[in-house]
Design a protein around this nucleic acid. Structure first.
Lengths: 193, 193, 193, 193
DNA sequence: AATGAATGAGTTTTCATTCAT
DNA sequence: TATGAATGAAAACTCATTCAT
């Protein structure tokens, strides 16, 4: 009603909870992070968290949705495109963007699979990955090419945490990762089966 | 067949604890698995666990060591070999064997990274991976080729859990994964830098 | 009389915990008293104790502070007074009052020295006693007179628990103890060194 | 049968247990000292302790007896002597010797009263002290003189732990303590009632 | 004279969650 | 939009003790 950027400490608590929770979950894992810790860091009481989220798991789910949404959008978009090599490459590019845009979240999901798996969309997670693979491989690809498609996707994940230790600028690295991934996709799609 | 007494309870309890623990940790994650659960499944008391392991974490560590050992042996072996393409390929092959030999353990480590990271050899885990990368890439490889080396290794991990859903026999799949990995290594080492 | 609900459970829980804890600690010792016991006697859950005190030790510390405070006040007061015999006698009198005012606490501290010693102010306890001794003896007193000062203080402690068995009214006994203590102080300060 | 000093590591385990136990009990208190700790320091197993003592408490009792014995002997001896001032002074001297001879034990008993009290001879402990008081005071002494007798005894205890911080050689200090104690006894016995 | 393996009962502590205000 | 006070359930861990060998 008044200004477009609302008062800094008003109504944004829900968001702040998510931010802090993600930070702590990512740092120490979901189970090792207690609501007390989150509340303390926010300087509110635990009970306040319950005003905004029904359970601890709900916080996690709300976070996970932020991650799944762009992924699902990408899957939807991909489904409507022609199954050309160009489309596949574009999908990989967009996948890379999605990853980069939600890096900590992605990292967290990867490092807490055991937890996330139970989360009623953990199965989904795997299914989503399989759906991605479907989108970027040839329908009747032979095994090795399927593996290449999988490898392309996972290389991008791996890029997120192992490549930190390599030298080169972040952009250079992203570019290199993408290059390799696109390469793999190209190979996977060029067999004369 | 021979004895009739309920359970011989020989000197194998320590081993049995490790087995059950691995099974449960892998299934539900480390933090969600309580010592009570482990003890119950073994039909001993919690206190018995503490006779064999000083803490819960100690159980995990003892398991992790079973995983790290073959990896370290491979790293040592690799360090003594000539840095030829053949060696690198052999390293990948052996890496695949190590992975297959300790599959549940590996899977567990991957799905519980957040937990394992704290474990004083979590850092090491990353370092070990970096050391592996060093072994299979060219000393002065350009970024894309470094990424290829990383991708080769991670593809093998990915193989362990995403490929379950693909069809084909286990051996076929292992072979396909290896093929792609070797391919990547070969490419990574064939740049005319 | 007024309300009919089981227990008003107002904002006095913290205080009630301290009361019950002191009672039980004094009766059975700190280590032998479990939080379960305290909680049961208060008809709250163990967790409620943890709402008010971060650890069991914290309860003990909070109690100990109630004892140390008057003592420290006395030490401060003593430090500002002229070092006359009258002052010293007044210090002893006040010391006696402090003792009487916190008798169960004092008794507890005395009977649980082994525990209290670790408590980061256990050393302090001894130091405090030494500071008291400093206040009531001559600066350059010879050994025997120093001992007399010590004896004066300790007689007052002894008075608290051994004299229970003697006959005579409580006041008579307190008076007798004080008489002896003042006597000792007087002697300790009358040597023509 | 063979030599008078038996083989150093033969049959003396019981004694060694007592030594270590006393040391640890004195340092950390009885309850805080676990049998595991004692066993570890002796480099035997917990079960070995049970070969020599039926329970943990038994170890404590065996220690306590070492303390009570000289005290009881002194009480007996005192009972057979004429009730003169000289006797009383001699009792104090002997009491001082007993204290010095079993210093750590005495210290321990003092710092763990809460525990020792339950020990079926804890009551006894107090009774013993009262018996000592009886021996060194006049039968019909007035209250102040009774207090003086008590103070004399307790000064000797106090001497054991507070005087550590005073300077002067150990002998000098013992002598000073004894002087004060004898003084108090003399005063206590010189009233013209 | 001692050990290896285990137990039962307990301990302190932590956590997610609730609810009246 | 929150808080203060509490709970129930469970966790990890410890301890004294036992007993077959």
């Amino acid at each position: 009603m008044s200004s477009s950027t609302p008062a800094p400490r008003r109504g944004n608590t829900r968001q702040r909870i998510q931010d802090v929770a993600l930070e702590l979950f990512a740092e120490q894992g979901y189970e090792k992070t207690s609501l007390r810790e989150i509340a303390e860091r926010l300087e509110v009481t635990k009970a306040a968290l319950y005003y905004h989220f029904k359970t601890k798991e709900d916080i996690l789910i709300s976070l996970a949705e932020d991650l799944t949404r762009p992924l699902d959008e990408l899957l939807e978009w991909g489904a409507t495109q022609p199954r050309t090599l160009e489309t596949k490459q574009e999908i990989m590019r967009r996948y890379g963007d999605a990853l980069a845009g939600a890096a900590p979240l992605f990292r967290f999901m990867q490092e807490n699979q055991a937890t996330v798996r139970e989360l009623r969309f953990g199965k989904d997670m795997k299914e989503r990955m399989m759906a991605m693979v479907e989108l970027v491989k040839e329908p009747e690809a032979e095994l090795a090419d399927q593996v290449r498609a999988v490898a392309a996707l996972f290389s991008m994940h791996a890029g997120m945490f192992l490549l930190q230790n390599l030298d080169g600028s972040a952009e250079e690295k992203r570019a290199a990762v993408l290059e390799v991934a696109l390469d793999l996709i190209t190979q996977a799609n060029s067999s004369k089966s």
